[in-house]
Write a protein that binds this DNA or RNA. Structure first.
Lengths: 168, 168
DNA sequence: GCCCATTTAGTTGTGCGCAATTGAATTGTG
DNA sequence: CACAATTCAATTGCGCACAACTAAATGGGC
């Protein structure tokens, strides 16, 4: 499979290539679909909290870590300021967080929870079981799936760094 | 679980709940991150073809199925006209597809490949191995992961239908 | 034949996600 | 101290995802 040099040439008799495209469709699409399905369930559940899914992720980090600068927040979530700035502005508008320029380093903006944001955690504590129930997966399956996805993410990230040059 | 009426009260001694929130963070975030990492690699690879990732998915369906109406396309990809209409308009602008109102039923619009769109398949045949290589997963692992994700998607879809009412 | 519910695309508005750019603050170096 | 490189947040622009809505065409019941 990895050693076949020229599967090209014959456009009339190359079922293997089409098969790859089909398989390809399956894997990339499966992940894409699962992500959106997850998102969809979260949307319903989080609506009661007045949060979108990415906003919920930000709140999770803040509940766990307390106050922290936008930069650190972005590292936790793998998001840049282009995504976080408007998102945080919306969270601030709803009164859940406050942003303040650091006095020590005026480049950085520290994000911290308001009383209202802290209080929201109590209601959020019920979210995990509802999501967990919706998946129909038990703890072991979730843990296993998570490990695979994390490994996949690491591999893809590593590949992305070397992918840019030539090939194809 | 469903019968515990008041888990509230003690905010001082509830480590289990925080643990759930932490676990929660892990699973939802893992999927989210994996999806974006995948997307990121596809973006690099597909750039040479002049396609975005969702546009690539549309082309995959067209290469496999041939001409079909927007509605059917949406069923294959689980996308609605709100997403597909502008996307198809862009694909048409780049000359890869053409949209034509059906004569039989003027409500529906049939999407079919141009010669250029058909020709692009040849170049796309190399995409799967590059992606596959980037994952570092072998065929068995990918197949297994895909099966789990599909099962997860089905469960989440089913849950979404019954989720709306009360709970919490 | 006529009305009404349904089907089908398209449009609008909101919110990510990310590349590219801007601008201010800081740090390092001479 | 001065100047260049770096860091950090914000902004702009584009495309996707989805809810809500509009508008046109179809088909069934009467």
């Amino acid at each position: 499979m990895t050693t076949t040099p020229t599967p090209s040439t014959a456009a009339s008799a190359a079922p293997a290539a089409d098969e790859y495209l089909r398989l390809e469709h399956q894997i990339c699409f499966s992940l894409h679909a699962a992500s959106r399905a997850f998102n969809s369930v979260y949307r319903v559940v989080l609506k009661e909290l007045g949060l979108t899914y990415p906003q919920y992720l930000v709140m999770l980090v803040l509940w766990e870590q307390g106050e922290l600068p936008v930069k650190k927040l972005g590292e936790h979530l793998r998001l840049d300021s282009g995504t976080l700035s408007p998102l945080l502005k919306r969270l601030e508008a709803t009164g859940l967080v406050r942003r303040e320029r650091s006095a020590r380093d005026e480049r950085s903006v520290h994000v911290h929870l308001t009383d209202e944001g802290t209080a929201l955690k109590e209601r959020a504590l019920l979210v995990p079981r509802r999501i967990s129930a919706a998946t129909g997966f038990d703890l072991a399956e979730i843990t296993d799936l998570r490990a695979r996805l994390d490994r996949l993410t690491r591999a893809l990230d590593a590949a992305a760094l070397e992918e840019t040059p030539d090939c194809l």
